[in-house]
Design a binder for these strands. Structure first.
Length: 597
RNA sequence: GGUCCAGUAGCUCAGUUGGAUAGAGCAACAGCCUUCUAAGCUGUAGGUCCCAGGUUCGAAUCCUGGCUGGAUCACCA
């Protein structure tokens, strides 16, 4: 049984016996002992003083005594202030090692027989411009969260909802019609999403020019923005699209096709896949029927002009429109529809939306509307909200060209990895194919780790130089530690050192070995907790700690030199455990594992 | 103005849900390559945890009030 649980139960018994009192679980706090003190686990004694009616020292000693006598694995204790530090026997830790040694995926739960089904929606790009750094944060979070959920035994569906319709697409289409000269990705060699994005920018430029001209000729600015000829044309195009105009539809699907080809390249570069891709052009009419049903049940209200609203004033919000006066639907209506469709189609138990925090209000409302409509799964939707990615120079603005393009960024990371490796002569003994593979692994690992280590809900600053740095709290450092561990085994093998299947019971630890062991011990809990909090950052920061412990440890303790046999075996054991834990953690983050360099 | 989120070292970030003397990396300084990979390790320096109250054995963490920054408050998606 888990030692922490064992201690907890013993404490309950002790309190019942000594003080004739039923302690509630929550008052019993057991934590890992801080490094500077002796012991493995610490019981906080303060909460029991009122019950024991005895001085601090006496209470702590009494409890410590009881635990030592009643739990075989508690071999010693000491009391410092209100903290009871318990030392756990070496046998317990050895058992832990021996038990988990054979597990290839230590800390990861296999898929249950009857798993909870979770859908994760992420990426969700518009088809009028290429992916940028903001999308990268979204994509990496979505991918990583999916992996963490899967590692907790859930069945995960990764889905993408492409926003392929609307006025913004029409702007790109119109600009291409006017100034495109028949350019295609094929005849220009340009990536499709970039090509289309260029025309979106072109539209904006020409549109601004028109607005300026109108203002110069005396038109009110607000009016000018609304009445610029280009915008009117784009609106007309959208109407035609909605009416199913064949020519427009043709152009639309051609240009979107270019964009998808471009996106595929970007996703592939990042190693991202989806189980299903939804298109808004297929789903934008969904939800209308559900809203009308809700109206019938009087869950919603109809105004004089015929528009339909949800009244959320009781929940502290205002009213939200769901159907316009002309009966057409809005974004919210659509989301109600797609959610309903997904819950019935996939029979999912939970739906996670990875969407930026600018939509916090939207998802708050969505949940309330679903509840109003009477769907019992309304509580099962979760908005994984994340903050913006800013640059040292400030915010990214796509129209002002200050965005960091996703492909460019990945390429730059690769370039930096190449330069640094060349400079240090790290990859001299590898073939060209191997070198390319390693560089890709490292540069992508650096990017992913840099993004994921930050708490999702916080906005973050992306510093290009720091992201490319391979020292310190970075992906390459974690990969490096793993590679070193692999190297230990390779060298051991060369020297015919056999790694035993089981450690002998008289194997001794020193403090550093114990530290590393305890860090490994925590991994399973971290995975579980990260799943509950939907936080890859937790894993990232943890695995960095582990890699650091490892590096400090092995720096001082050569393994393969002459020393007592069981000591050597213990270290090989620890290496392998640590290696597996690091590898598992990297996989949860979506970071590739490098070979032993 | 209403609502939500954030504020921790010069910079970028952790801080295990209220515990012991608040931690890393970067940048600065001083060291460590015949040992397994120096993409590393050791040390020095660096803190009003935004401010003020409150809750209690105990607060970076919880509550209240302020300050600063961000998001949002569309018949856009």
């Amino acid at each position: 049984m888990d030692i922490e649980l064992q201690i907890k139960q013993a404490v309950i018994l002790a309190i019942r016996e000594f003080y004739n009192h039923e302690a509630n679980e929550k008052s019993i706090q057991i934590q890992e002992t801080r490094k500077d003190f002796e012991g493995d686990f610490t019981l906080v004694v303060f909460p029991f003083l009122k019950i024991s009616k005895k001085p601090l020292e006496a209470t702590a000693n009494e409890l410590g005594d009881y635990l030592q006598k009643n739990i075989t694995n508690v071999v010693d204790f000491n009391v410092i202030k209100g903290f009871l530090n318990l030392s756990i026997s070496k046998t317990y830790w050895l058992d832990f090692l021996n038990k988990n040694y054979g597990k290839e995926n230590y800390g990861i739960v296999a898929e249950n027989k009857n798993p909870e089904k979770v859908m994760v929606e992420f990426s969700s790009p518009n088809t009028n411009k290429p992916l940028h750094l903001g999308h990268i944060r979204n994509i990496l979070l979505g991918d990583s969260v999916s992996r963490i959920l899967a590692a907790n035994g859930k069945k995960v569906y990764k889905v993408n909802l492409v926003n392929d319709r609307g006025i913004h697409i029409c702007k790109s289409m119109l600009a291409w019609q006017k100034w495109g000269n028949g350019n295609t990705p094929k005849n220009t060699g340009e990536k499709g999403d970039k090509l289309v994005g260029d025309y979106y920018i072109r539209f904006d430029r020409e549109y601004k020019k028109q607005v300026e001209e109108l203002v110069a000729s005396g038109t009110d600015e607000k009016l000018a923005k609304d009445k610029a000829p280009l915008l009117i044309e784009a609106r007309e195009m959208l109407l035609k699209w909605e009416a199913g105009d064949e020519g427009i539809r043709q152009l639309w699907s051609t240009m979107n096709g270019w964009v998808y080809a471009g996106f595929d390249v970007s996703y592939k570069k990042m190693g991202i896949t989806f189980d299903k891709i939804y298109y808004e052009s297929d789903t934008y009419k969904l939800g209308k029927k559900l809203v009308l049903d809700g109206l019938e049940k009087s869950a919603l209200i109809k105004k004089d002009d015929g528009s339909v609203w949800a009244d959320l004033s009781k929940q502290g919000l205002d009213e939200k429109i769901l159907l316009r006066a002309d009966g057409t639907s809005v974004y919210m209506t659509q989301d109600v529809g797609t959610a309903h469709q997904r819950f019935s189609e996939f029979d999912i138990d939970k739906h996670i939306y990875v969407v930026g925090n600018e939509q916090n209000y939207h998802f708050q409302v969505l949940k309330l509307v679903l509840k109003k409509l009477g769907f019992e799964w309304a509580e099962a939707i979760y908005h994984l909200s994340y903050g913006m990615v800013e640059l040292p120079s400030g915010k990214m603005k796509s129209r002002e060209g200050t965005v960091v393009d996703a492909d460019d960024l990945v390429d730059e990371m690769l370039h930096a990895a190449r330069e640094i490796s060349k400079e240090q002569g790290k990859l001299e003994n590898f073939s060209e194919v191997e070198v390319e593979k390693i560089l890709e692994t490292i540069s992508l690992g650096a990017l992913k780790f840099f993004i994921l280590k930050v708490d999702p809900k916080k906005s973050m600053t992306f510093i290009p130089e720091d992201s490319i740095d391979f020292n310190g709290n970075t992906g390459p450092f974690v990969q490096y530690s793993y590679a070193r561990i692999q190297s230990v085994f390779r060298k051991a093998n060369e020297k015919n050192v056999v790694i035993p299947k089981k450690l002998s019971p008289d194997c001794e630890f020193n403090t550093k070995e114990l530290q590393l062991l305890k860090t490994n011990y925590a991994f399973g809990d971290i995975v579980k907790e990260a799943g509950e909090n939907l936080s890859p950052a937790l894993i990232a920061n943890y695995v960095y700690e582990l890699a650091r412990e490892y590096n400090q440890f092995y720096h001082e303790l050569p393994i393969l030199v002459e020393e007592k046999k069981d000591k050597r075996e213990l270290r090989l054991f620890l290496s392998e455990m640590t290696g597996r834990t690091i590898k598992s953690a990297m996989r949860l983050l979506g970071i590739d594992v490098p070979p032993a360099m």
